[in-house]
Nucleic acid binder design. Sequence first.
DNA 1: TGGTTGTGTCATGCT
DNA 2: CAAGCATGACACAAC
Length: 748
Amino acid sequence: MLSLKKYLTEGLLQFTILLSLIGVRVDVDTYLTSQLPPLREIILGPSSAYTQTQFHNLRNTLDGYGIHPKSIDLDNYFTARRLLSQVRALDRFQVPTTEVNAWLVHRDPEGSVSGSQPSSGLTLESSSGLQDVTGPDNGVRESETEQGFSEDLEDLGAVAPPVSGDLTKEDIDLIDILWRQDIDLGAGREIFDYSHRQKEHDVDKDLCDGAEQDDTWSGAGAEALARNLLVDGETGESFPAQFPADISSITEAVPSESEPPGLQNHLLSPLLTGTESPFDLEQQWQDLMSIMEMQAMEVNTSASEILYSAPPGDPLSTNYSLAPNTPINQNVSLHQASLGGCSQDFSLFSPEVESLPVAGGSTLLPLAPSNSTSLNSTFSSTNLAGLFFPAQLNGSANDTAGPELPDPLGGLLDEAMLDEISLMDLAIEEGFNPVQASQLEEEFDSDSGLSLDSSHSPSSLSSSDGSSSSSSSSSSSSSSSSSSSASSSASSSFSEEGAVGYSSDSETLDLEEAEGAVGYQPEYSKFCRMSYQDPAQLSCLPYLEHVGHNHTYNMAPSALDSAELPAPGALKKGSKEKQADFLDKQMSRDEHRARAMKIPFTNDKIINLPVEEFNELLSKYQLSEAQLSLIRDIRRRGKNKMAAQNCRKRKLDTILNLERDVEDLQRDKARLLREKVEFLRSLRQMKQKVQSLYQEVFGRLRDENGRPYSPSQYALQYAGDGSVLLIPRTLADQQARRQERKPKDRRK
DNA sequence: TGGTTGTGTCATGCT
DNA sequence: CAAGCATGACACAAC
């Protein structure tokens, strides 16, 4: 049975590692700096057994057994301090990696209906404003998304200035990756700069007056929105005849599937997305996934029918002359683009659409141009155009249509670069030497992921405590106390754990075999040197025949022969006195004492006999009180010596197992990092796809005069219900800025 | 000569 | 309560 102490000493560290695996931060430093004895001693170790050292030099390594774990080759690698630093490093990287998994696993199709508004998701990444889209009836989702913000924030290494005091090199690298992507996607790097955003925020304060004007203006607009919904007579879809200018009211409106389709309160949800890019990325991911799924489904939807079956000059589409000074909303009937709902409506981006020629200039949903002409206004990066169009386009009066835009993603990281980053990250963060990094790379090349872990990870974790500590200690203790044979206990304990103890020659042979079978060669080489006496040599001496001391606790005969025995020739040459001196030196103090006290039996028997047999043995002889006392002391010391050796071996095993676990976790980290990079890569590809689709759709839009809309003046935006609106960029910009302020205010 | 390392031993707590 | 085990702490020897 494992004692609580064992749990504390061995389990606690591993538990810490496991906690780090699942993303729980365990600040070991706190415990160490506070000088709490348990943890500090567990990790650093008060005794020499834990100290980093060259336990043995290379002379101790046995040929064929590889490098001894304590050999000098591993000195720099195998140290308690290094283990500690690795453990500390674990909680840095595990958070992002676990989040990568959660990123995908938690993508709930149903939840994504409300949680993954395509607009917000697709626009958030480059957003400089932070806005929680949640509304009054969506408190749960709000907390959920906010939590996801921070997690994804760390995950993707995007923006985490307020809480990124402990940004690691890895985080910075990942941030760089994302920056490159986002820059290529049209988001300026400064967007992710917290100080810059602070400046923006200050600027926003300066613009507060204008925003308040917007409020008044939009307040009326919201009401007008409800009043001026146009309903398609054929499809029953609602088209907001007047743009809902009040962003705040829209923001508070909760996107809901149960909401009547006609209510376009969340038309501008894309603009309401927050500045917290994690949410953006999460949303983007979900949205892009939904897009991909929709493309795969190739579902013909009412939206596509509307878009492409409507003949040019469709009266319906020409009736959208909006009042001046009001933004123009263009509902292109992309209802419920999110995954869970009527996502087929999102087949606007279906391959079917892709196949359509861009020049197919049917007048789709012509709109009356609004008065929004402030082309130079910083268009909110939270809208689709902000995401898919280069930043310079957003900021300049570029009237060219989308399809002519350069590929903003051309400069993204290539795969080799990402892989290199991943590996460099490992090498730098985890103290990997180049050899280890190359090993990781090989693992990557083999695309095996955890293939090598199979030989380590499952066994190491299970065997670390199971075999070396709990099972062995319990079995050895129980067997030694219950069995009638001391040798059986010794061999059993050693075979399971490599435990040491007094043993006869036959036992040591068994032990050697057992050792080889169990695979304890490293420890074996060490513990073969734990004693100095050769029982065979002792027995060959006439005057010691009756003693037969054997302090080769766990020494294998071969090791004894090779390591401890002097050359036979030397023995022959030496005189009997020399032999006697040598043997005297080889005898332990207890053996000397036993010989001096004329103890009539061997120390081996004294120590290893079970209690009953030991008492019988004592009863057979007439022993003085001093002899009895010495015998009991010898027995006590002998058993304690074995116990100490076992204890030290357990310590060593624990350290080795921890080292192995750390290596396994490093492999896991490498694999997860690689997966993360791959996810980012696929995300980038999907962004490209969405961008092209966006441009294609946008390029097909025509106003009432049959002219294409200028991408610098208009942008497509997703609504919460899946519809897509064509709105002026200036309006979108205003909305985005307004939404950007809200989270900041909330933080205060 | 001092530091490191391995080992033995003792004290102590626990089973 | 005795026996045994586990382990921290210390001493000592070898290097």
